[in-house]
Structures are given as structure tokens and as C-alpha cells.
């Protein structure tokens, strides 16, 4: 067993060294393929994160009757916190609402609050965030039941926009997932074809091994080890290149932060990205080299 393992590793190492040009071609192809795969996957994941974060920014606004007492408002807010799916509840009193309106007046240079004189016609409001956002419509509908909630005057939930966003999020997730799967397959095919070339260069060795009674596992061993080497080293190089490109570009794009981009969860960290890429490289290297050898063992 020990001799076999030594043989497998030595042969893989010798083959990589002896076929220098072929090894370089294989390694650079694997690196570029994994860079394209990793970069595209990162882009798709960030797009998905962005789209998926948008519905979470929506809230249900519940307007109470103007004549409600503050105590009744706070009691209603307390009841709402217990509703299933409700993540957070915040009370906006009529005084706060009027102050907000004044600020808007100043910003927009309008005179709505001045026209009101000393009367505050605004009601207390309760803002609710729902998680997951898909439950938003059900929560809003239950609040519209005037028998259970006679204190409520109106409920605004912007359901049409929310549903559009949720549909977009699903679409991005599904299309992104399909593209990622296709890219994975394409990367696998590229790596397999490259490894097939290196195996073709060693066909005489394989023929001799078969003639002298080497088992299939032993013939595969050095070639799979070689495939794993290209996969792992290619992933490492692709990871380093991607990490530096993404770090630089996010630093550059960071200067152009828009309100739209705020609140998106942070992207995957460099160690996680590197680890995932290494795992993909390892799996692709092993599986594709295993498959590439099959036809030479028939």
C-alpha cells in the first residue's frame, strides 16, 4: 500500500515535470476556466443578494383612527409584535409624523404644514417589517379585518411593487442558478479536455502498465493525482487573482455608494471564496481526470 502511494505520487510529479509545456498549458487553462467560473459565480451571487435584499426593505404602514388614544396605539403595537411573521414594529406618533412633514416641507419648499395652522390632522402610525417578505400580503390582509382591529383606519403595503420584486428575485435566483450550473459543466468540460491531452501524451505508459498487470486503480492513480494537482493549484491561482481584482474594484466602486446599494448584506469573504474555489478545483480535477482516463482503459 505504501509503495503504491509512493508510486502514484512520484509518477504524478514526474509527469508534471517531464511534460513541462503540457503541464503549463493544462494549469493555465484550468486557472482561467476557474477564474471565469469563480468571477461569474461571485457576480451572480452579489446580484442575487441585491435583489433578494430589496423586498426586505418594504414595510406595512398601518394608519390608526385620528381619535385613538396613545395608550390604544401602544397596546395595538404590542399585539402586532406577537403576530406570526412580524419582525419589527415601530410606532410613529402623530407628533412625529407632523415633524416629518415639516421637514419635507422645508426640503421641498412647500407650505402644507403652514396651511394646517395649529391643527394636527395626522393619525398615529405603526410601521411593520415582515420576514420573510413573502408573508407581507397575508399580514396586511389580516390587519384589514376591521372587526378584529377596529382601531385601524387604513393599511398600506405596496403589494404590487413587492410582488414584482419578489418575482424578480426568484427569476434572478433561478436564472443565476442555471447559469452557475452551466458554467460548472463548461469548466468541467474544458478541464477534462485539457487532461485528456496530458493523458494522450502518456498513452504508451498506460499501455505498458496494462500489459504488466497494473490494476485499473493503479493506472488511474497518478493521472487522477495529476488532475487534482491542476485543479487545486489552478483554483489557488484563480482565487488569488479574483480576490485581488474584487478587492480593488470594490474599493473603487465604494466611492460611488448609492442609497440603492445600502443595506445589502456583505459578499462572501476572501477565505470563504478561496475555500469554495479550492473545493471546486479539487472536485473538478478528480472527477474530470477520472472520466478522461476511462476511454484509455477500455
Amino acid at each position: 500500500m505504501f509503495h503504491t502511494l509512493v508510486f502514484v505520487l512520484e509518477e504524478a510529479g514526474k509527469s508534471i515535470r517531464r511534460n513541462g509545456l503540457m503541464s503549463f498549458a493544462a494549469l493555465s487553462t484550468v486557472t482561467v476556466a476557474l477564474m471565469v467560473f469563480g468571477g461569474s459565480l461571485f457576480g451572480l451571487y452579489r446580484l442575487h443578494q441585491f435583489v433578494a435584499s430589496q423586498p426586505g426593505r418594504f414595510r406595512i404602514s398601518v394608519f390608526l383612527h385620528v381619535d385613538q388614544s396613545r395608550a390604544a396605539t401602544l397596546e395595538l403595537a404590542r399585539r402586532m409584535r406577537g403576530l406570526p411573521g412580524v419582525e419589527s414594529v415601530s410606532v410613529v406618533t402623530k407628533e412625529q409624523a407632523l415633524a416629518d412633514l415639516r421637514r419635507k416641507d422645508e426640503r421641498r419648499q412647500t407650505n402644507i404644514t403652514a396651511a394646517l395652522g395649529n391643527v394636527n390632522p395626522l393619525p398615529d402610525r405603526i410601521d411593520i417589517r415582515v420576514s420573510p417578505p413573502e408573508r407581507s400580503t397575508a399580514v396586511a390582509d389580516s390587519l384589514r379585518d376591521s372587526k378584529r382591529y377596529p382601531q385601524i383606519e387604513a393599511v398600506r403595503d405596496e403589494r404590487a411593487l413587492l410582488e414584482q420584486l419578489l418575482a424578480t428575485s426568484r427569476l434572478v435566483r433561478n436564472i443565476g442558478g442555471s447559469i452557475a450550473a452551466l458554467l460548472f459543466l463548461a469548466t468541467g468540460v474544458v478541464i477534462q479536455n485539457t487532461l485528456r491531452l496530458t493523458i494522450f501524451a502518456r498513452r504508451r505508459e498506460i499501455a505498458i502498465m496494462r500489459l504488466v498487470g497494473a490494476t485499473r486503480a493503479l493506472i488511474r492513480g497518478p493521472l487522477v493525482a495529476e488532475g487534482v494537482f491542476y485543479g487545486v493549484i489552478g483554483a489557488l491561482l484563480a482565487g488569488i487573482a479574483l480576490a485581488s481584482v474584487l478587492t480593488q474594484s470594490s474599493r473603487y466602486l465604494g466611492r460611488y455608494q448609492t442609497p440603492l446599494a445600502q443595506g445589502i448584506p456583505p459578499g462572501p469573504s476572501v477565505p470563504i471564496m478561496m475555500g469554495s474555489l479550492l473545493a471546486v478545483g479539487l472536485i473538478l480535477g478528480a472527477v474530470t481526470s477520472w472520466m478522461a482516463i476511462r476511454r484509455f482503459l477500455r
Binding site: 500500500m1 509503495h3 503504491t4 508510486f7 517531464r18 504508451r204 505508459e205 499501455a207 505498458i208 502498465m209 500489459l211 504488466v212 498487470g213 497494473a214 493503479l218 493506472i219
Partner: peptide, 29 residues
Amino acid sequence: GVVFQDIGLLPDRNVYENVAFALRVIGAG
């Protein structure tokens, strides 16, 4: 043992290594 006209020696190994190769691939020490 099998000897063929068309399956020769491995060009990047010397005589000793070519012969030893047959033992190494069957796990000989």
C-alpha cells in the same frame, strides 16, 4: 510477460527505470 514490436520503451527513462517500471506498477518494494 508480453513483448511487442510496437510497444517499446519509455523514452524518458533509462534502461534500469524502464525495467523497474514493470515492478513498480504492481506495487513491488
